[in-house]
């Protein structure tokens, strides 16, 4: 045993990813690409929201979509119908995307060919919040049926996003969902958070959402 010695490493495991994420953000800034990291639980209406967003904006800017999934390409198929460029990223069992995977996907999309890239992250409110993807801004969707207690249960996610979309707002009468309570809980964690109630199905609130995107995209 005496031939062994203690060698100090003291390295944060997530440091590498943070460094790569910062590099990617700088590169995107220089190339005038706005990358939006969109996160939510499974079934909150991410893909429907993406489709709505594309529909509203595709005539005024060049859009690309990165679809991250553990497996399958159902979402990519749906998005491909809109005519925008889609890259399917398989995380192969990983529950989140990191900056390197995001960068590979963006290179495939071609950063010169797009103004606005949407990264549809893996459906999960926990892990994606911990891994900086290098996105310019982060947004999340909470849908009404999921319940108004989610900011209490997943505080990290709510504290790191720029925008919170509250989806399926057209169903609010059928659920015990206290919109004011969610707003208060989210603002307590994140005073600068922008909250937009929407319905990806009926189109309610989509204008305010795409207006926010317009302010972020440089053409």
């Amino acid at each position: 045993m005496d031939k062994f010695k203690v060698i100090e490493i003291k390295e944060s495991v997530f440091e590498d990813n943070e460094r790569q994420a910062n590099l990617l953000r700088e590169k995107l800034e220089k190339e005038n690409v706005f990358l939006l990291n969109l996160m939510s639980s499974p079934g909150s209406g991410k893909t429907t929201t993406v489709l709505r967003t594309i529909e509203a904006l595709k005539d005024e800017m060049r859009i690309g979509v990165l679809e991250a999934d553990i497996d399958s390409d159902v979402d990519a198929h749906a998005v491909v119908q809109t005519g925008v460029e889609v890259i399917q990223l398989h995380t192969g069992g990983m529950c989140h995307l990191d900056a390197d995977m995001t960068k590979q996907g963006l290179l495939e999309l071609g950063t010169k060919e797009i103004d606005f890239a949407i990264l549809e992250n893996v459906g999960n409110l926990v892990c994606p919040a911990e891994f900086d993807t290098g996105a310019s801004k982060n947004a999340m969707i909470l849908s009404v049926p999921e319940g108004d207690d989610k900011p209490l249960k997943y505080p990290l996610m709510f504290s790191m996003v720029n925008v919170l979309l509250i989806n399926k707002i057209d169903t609010i009468d059928y659920f015990d969902f206290d919109l004011d309570a969610v707003k208060k809980r989210a603002k307590k964690l994140n005073p600068n958070i922008k909250i937009i109630p929407i319905s990806a199905k009926t189109g309610e609130g989509i204008n305010e959402w795409v207006d926010w995107i317009r302010t972020q995209v440089k053409k």
């Binding site: 031939k3 062994f4 010695k5 203690v6 060698i7 100090e8 490493i9 003291k10 390295e11 944060s12 495991v13 997530f14």
Partner: peptide
Amino acid sequence: NEFLIKEIIAC
């Protein structure tokens, strides 16, 4: 919040 590789005992 840390998650660190502190050290290794090695030769």
